[in-house]
């Protein structure tokens, strides 16, 4: 990025694991909680415990975020916990890119890119939404210290440019 924008945008390295299964099944839920070490999130939310996060992506899909490099170990632990069940555990760390947007105006910068309502009332801390950002699909969630955007690695450069553009110092907004 050529010049710093009105918010800070940084690309984060993280281990990411897609976990799919029947989220209505008690057996699956119990095993998933044991394997992830986190309480399963309610629809359209994300939960944290230290460096780990577990987000609700779809009625049959969760995303586990772990520190960078811990993907493979976590996959092994999850596969052990879910042994014998109809479930999918896939390390998608290299298939996804993650950006963190922080600073006053972070919500405004992202609101330029997505049809999602990002006002603090509609999108409080702990909310996760999969939506469109510019021309690509992405997921975003709100944390205490900003917003995190997740997209496919193949469009990471596009996303980086998009975020740089949206946070251009001459284009600062204060709406929320």
């Amino acid at each position: 990025m050529s010049e710093p924008g009105f918010v800070s945008v940084s690309e984060l390295g993280a281990g990411m694991i897609a976990l799919r299964g029947d989220l209505r099944s008690k057996v699956f839920r119990k095993a998933a909680e044991a394997g992830t070490g986190l309480k399963l999130p309610a629809p359209c939310t994300i939960v944290w415990d230290g460096a780990r996060a577990l987000g609700w992506m779809a009625p049959d899909e969760l995303l586990l975020v772990v520190p960078e490099g811990e993907g493979a170990v976590t996959v092994a632990a999850l596969e052990h916990a879910l042994a014998g069940q109809h479930a999918l555990v896939a390390d998608v760390s290299d298939a996804r890119a993650m950006f963190h947007i922080s600073g006053p105006g972070a919500r405004e910068a992202l609101a330029k890119l997505t049809p999602a309502d990002l006002s603090p009332a509609a999108f409080p801390v702990g909310t996760l939404r999969r939506t469109r950002l510019g021309q690509v699909a992405g997921a975003l969630w709100a944390e205490e210290r900003g917003l995190t955007v997740l997209c496919f690695r193949s469009v990471a450069v596009y996303m980086r440019d998009l975020l740089a553009d949206a946070s251009h110092p001459d284009a600062a907004l204060r709406v929320f």
Binding site: C44, P59, P115, R132
Partner: peptide
């Protein structure tokens, strides 16, 4: 009806 979100036409 699955995730309960109001989806914009461009998301569909």
């Amino acid at each position: 009806p699955y995730c309960g979100q109001m989806a914009d036409e461009t998301e569909l």
